[in-house]
Computed example of a mutant assay.
Amino acid sequence: MRQSSIQVCPVPLEQQPVNEYEELKESWFFRWATLDNRLFVRKITLIWIIGWLISSPIAAASFSPSKSALPFVLFSNLGAGLVLALILLQLFFGWHYVSDRLKKATIFYEESGWYDGQTWPKPPEMLTRDRLIVSYQISPILGRLTRTVGLLALLMAGDSLLWLYL
């Protein structure tokens, strides 16, 4: 009976890319990107509202809401957009990191500490499995996050242009 090369992998379990993917998928924060559209939009909207609540007192100190309502709203929107952008970028970079680890033909790992890094070439069946995970599971997540960041950038650019023409 032939022993699978996946079983003789010297990489510690917590550093194997497929296990990093599973851990990311089950994480309370990074799981947001895997939710269905309705729940994803709800989470993003909640973060935007929290960002608005954080940035609106700062905006109110600069622009009185009763005297300068439009600058107050625009500044609050830009602040909320910045908070949301930071959250979305954290999501994107986390998923992108795991995607890169899965796509590579070798696994970089540390045996006992930061000073003794090793690389291990993935066997063909592991490389195929990992690249299928990237293609069918992670690429749609990265696409969704890219589109969301793009839409947020457009909205913030619109706010900024409106700000310039006040």
Rank of each mutant, 00 (worst) to 15 (best):
P121E: 11
D100K: 00
Q118Y: 05
L145G: 00
T128M: 12
T106W: 03
G51V: 07
I6T: 12
E20Y: 08
S76K: 03
P12D: 00
W48Q: 15
E110C: 01
T34Q: 13
S160C: 12
V73M: 05
S112Y: 08
E20S: 11
P71A: 01
Y136Q: 09
Y165I: 06
V41I: 13
V73W: 06
L132Y: 09
M126G: 04
E26D: 13
E110Y: 08
Q15L: 06
L127I: 00
W32S: 12
Y165E: 15
L155P: 04
G51S: 02
L142D: 04
A153F: 10
A153N: 09
Y165P: 01
P10E: 00
V134L: 06
A80S: 15
R129W: 03
P121F: 05
T146H: 14
I50Y: 08
L91G: 03
E20Q: 15
P123F: 02
L164M: 15
I141F: 07
G150M: 05
T45L: 15
R144V: 01
L13D: 14
L151D: 07
L35A: 03
I107C: 13
L91T: 06
L91Y: 00
L132K: 13
N77A: 15
F29Y: 05
R38V: 01
F93P: 01
L46C: 12
D159C: 15
D36L: 00
K122Y: 01
V134W: 01
G143T: 12
F29K: 00
I138L: 06
Q118W: 05
N37W: 11
S139F: 03
M1W: 02
E125C: 00
Q118H: 09
A69G: 10
F29G: 02
S139R: 08
L166V: 14
L78G: 04
K104A: 08
I6D: 10
E26I: 11
Q90L: 10
K67C: 05
Q90W: 12
I138P: 05
P17M: 04
R131T: 04
I133N: 03
E26W: 09
L132T: 12
S4W: 05
P121A: 11
G51D: 01
G158C: 14
R2D: 13
L70N: 03
M126W: 03
I141E: 09
